[in-house]
Amino acid sequence: MKIKPFLESENDDIRYASILLMGNLSKFGSGEPVFKDQIHNVLVSLLLHLVDPNPQVVKACKFAMRVCAPVVGSEQITAMFQNHLHEDKSLHYGEFINDLTKYLIQDFPGMLNFYHISVIQFFKSNWPEVRAAAAMFIGFLLGNLQQEHFSQLNMATVTKGLVLLLQDSDPVVRAKAAEAMGQFH
């Protein structure tokens, strides 16, 4: 809980170090329910910082997610993180998040409200890359969500956030927000 604020630090070195620390702590938290909750608590931040403008932060996220994966509690997500999150390999973020949201919906339906609220908080991130990734994440989450789960999401807040992103100064953010809104059905 004390590390979480540093994951969003504007200082690249602090962001990098806090993410590495989170990953290294997972070696000691295996089997601890409280640590599992904390991993879920920072998962959205780690996922969105996979597109961080600092390449070292991206590598740290990949490392942290690979070593924390067994604690998450999903064999499919663990396998996905182990197979796709290699520090020196590129990642097709859209495909990765699209597949991941399917597993999150399937394996953690009770966490959907928490995940979508966490993602919405990143609509105001300092980094346009992270704002665009947040729009993509919410878009794929909505696109993959079955009808029975929609009641868990605050669609008014999602819509309001995406409308604000449509007015963002960065054209990529605006495009990703429009794509996310295309998932509404």
Results as ranks from 00 to 15, higher is better:
Ala180Leu: 10
Cys61Gly: 01
Gln38Met: 04
Ala156Trp: 11
Ala79Ser: 14
Leu104Asp: 05
Ala17Asp: 14
Ile14Tyr: 04
Ala135Trp: 04
His116Pro: 01
Val163Cys: 13
Asp88Gln: 13
Ile77Cys: 11
Trp127Leu: 11
Phe96Ser: 09
Phe63Gln: 02
Val58Gln: 11
Leu21Met: 07
Ala79Arg: 15
Asn113His: 08
Lys4Arg: 13
Ile138His: 00
Asn144Trp: 06
Pro109Thr: 01
Arg131Asp: 03
Glu129Leu: 12
Gly143Glu: 09
Met22Ala: 14
Met1Gln: 02
Met22Val: 10
Phe122Pro: 00
His92Ala: 09
Ala132Ile: 04
Arg174Gly: 02
Gly73Phe: 03
Gly94Ser: 07
Gly73Thr: 07
Val57Thr: 11
Glu32Arg: 11
Leu21Ala: 08
Gln167Gly: 07
His92Pro: 03
Lys27Ala: 06
Pro53Asp: 07
Ala79Val: 05
Leu164Met: 06
Gly73Leu: 13
His185Thr: 14
Arg174Ser: 02
Gln82Asp: 15
Asp99Gly: 12
Ile117Asp: 06
Leu164Ser: 13
Leu47Val: 04
Arg174Asn: 04
Ile19Thr: 01
Leu7Cys: 01
Ser125His: 07
Val163Ser: 12
Ala64Tyr: 00
Ala156Tyr: 07
Met1Pro: 04
Pro109His: 07
Ala175Tyr: 09
Phe140Met: 06
Leu166Ser: 15
Gln147Asp: 10
Met181Asn: 02
Arg131Met: 13
Ala17Met: 08
Met80Phe: 07
Asp13Ala: 14
Glu129Ala: 14
Val158Phe: 15
Phe96Ile: 04
Phe150Cys: 00
Ser74Asn: 03
Glu87Met: 11
Pro171Met: 02
Ser118Thr: 04
Pro55Cys: 05
Glu87Gly: 15
His40Ala: 03
Asn154Ser: 07
Val173Arg: 05
Phe28Lys: 10
Trp127Ala: 11
Leu47Tyr: 08
Phe28Gly: 13
Val57Ala: 01
Met155Lys: 14
Leu162Phe: 06
Tyr103Asp: 08
Asp99Met: 10
Met111Asn: 08
Glu10Ser: 12
Leu47Thr: 01
Pro171Glu: 04
Gln106Glu: 10
Ser74Ala: 12
Val42Arg: 00
Lys2Gln: 09
Ser90Arg: 05
Met136Thr: 12
Ala134Tyr: 05
Gly161Thr: 06
Lys89Val: 08
Gln76Val: 02
Lys176Glu: 12
Ile39His: 00
His40Lys: 04
Ser9Gly: 00
Leu162Asp: 06
Gly139Thr: 10
His40Asn: 05
Gln82Lys: 09
Met80Ile: 04
